[in-house]
Design a binder for these strands. Structure first.
Lengths: 110, 110
DNA sequence: TTGACACGTAAGACCTTGCTTACCTATTGT
DNA sequence: ACAATAGGTAAGCAAGGTCTTACGTGTCAA
């Protein structure tokens, strides 16, 4: 079960708005490249190149069906991003708490 | 309370391992550039340039104290990333559920 | 078996990124 | 006033990303 080409960092993969849009497109289920590219203004080869990056980040997998290649979303690597975020969650929560406390003080003054 | 230079996409800002390390460095509290750069092998100007990107993504703020500039973590923009992730959470959760179910079937077979 | 289709890949243009060194300004301490 | 410190900025460069068009390969259908 070893990933053969896990070269691309997930953070790098999702840094591109185009690639995030590609992932969003695949939330509805697997699609062949033709259908994916239909929703984008860039050329089909450009879409293929982005799909390759996503594949090398394991964010999509490809299944060959006849002459089509159906790309499927694989969200699992996003857990790394979520895990990274948890280290910072307390910081923006701290901010919110401070704001809430400040508002409470204002409330009490009335 | 308008951000004067919110040019940089948060996803782009955190795509760099160096910048993620810079953010990690600041979790301990505000630091002057000198102290930040001490933990990195790249030059101080390179650190300054990364800090600028982070500042333009509002991930850090700077406070001038004498001849120092103390950079402080501001995690709030990371909420955008977290919010984006929630759209995909159900996908990797679906995977986990499928795995758990498969394991249960194996259990039952014994 | 021949043409159309689906798709990847190669090559090249172009822009951006990320580093370096050199230099500048602002502040502090003597 | 002057030297040292803190740190931003400019210039230059190598490397990499992102498009395009052209082309190659595998598959289907007549």
């Amino acid at each position: 079960m070893l990933d053969q080409e896990e070269r691309v960092d997930v953070f790098v993969a999702i840094a591109s708005p185009v690639r995030r849009a590609l992932l969003a497109t695949l939330t509805g289920g697997p699609l062949p490249v033709r259908d994916i590219a239909a929703g984008f203004s860039i050329s089909r080869p450009a879409v293929s190149q982005h799909l390759r990056i996503l594949k090398e980040a394991s964010l999509v997998s490809e299944e060959r069906v006849g002459r089509e290649r159906r790309y499927q979303l694989n969200a699992k690597p996003l857990r790394e991003v979520e895990q990274w975020l948890t280290h910072y969650e307390r910081f923006w929560r701290a901010r919110l708490d401070a704001l809430r406390d400040a508002l409470e003080v204002l409330e009490d003054q009335h």
